[in-house]
Design a protein around this nucleic acid. Structure first.
Length: 110
DNA sequence: TTCCTGACGCTCG
DNA sequence: GCGAGCGCCAGGA
C-alpha cells in the first residue's frame, strides 16, 4: 500500500461496494465505479472497457466524466483506468497524471 | 427542457 | 507514424 488505498484495505471491497450503492449517484456512475474497483492490482483497463462493463460500450466518454467526479478518490483504483490508445490519460486526484504514472509503475502495470 | 462540458475513441489527412 | 477533427453518451446548470 502506498497510502491511497489504506481505507480500501481496512474496509474491504464489500464495504466500498456498499458505500457506492448507498451513495446518491446514478446507476451508470455506480457501475463505472464498481467496474474500476474490480480491476486487479498490477493490471490496467481502458475507459472503453469500463463503459462496456457499465452497460454501454459507447459511453466511454461518460465513463471518463464519471471517474472525473471521483466521489471515492482513494477508495477506487481509478489510476488503473487508461486510454485505449496506450496513453495514460488524465488524473484529477492528488498528484495528477504524474502520480498516476508513478502508481502504475509501482504496481508494475506499465 | 435545452445547452454545454468532459479523466475518451475512431477516422481522415 | 503523427496530428487534427468529428462523434459519442451521461450529468449538471
Amino acid at each position: 500500500m502506498r497510502g491511497f488505498g489504506i481505507m480500501a484495505a481496512v474496509m474491504g471491497r464489500k464495504e466500498i461496494l456498499k458505500k457506492i450503492r448507498e451513495s446518491s449517484l446514478t446507476e451508470f456512475q455506480k457501475k463505472v465505479l464498481v467496474a474500476t474497483l474490480n480491476i486487479p492490482r498490477g493490471k490496467t483497463m481502458t475507459y472503453k472497457e469500463i463503459a462496456k462493463l457499465a452497460g454501454n460500450p459507447r459511453a466511454y466518454r461518460a465513463a471518463g466524466t464519471a471517474l472525473g467526479k471521483n466521489p471515492f478518490a482513494p477508495l477506487v483504483p481509478c489510476h488503473r483506468v487508461i486510454r485505449s490508445d496506450g496513453k495514460i490519460g488524465n488524473y484529477s486526484a492528488q498528484g495528477g497524471t504524474k502520480r498516476k504514472i508513478r502508481l502504475l509503475k509501482i504496481e508494475r502495470a506499465i
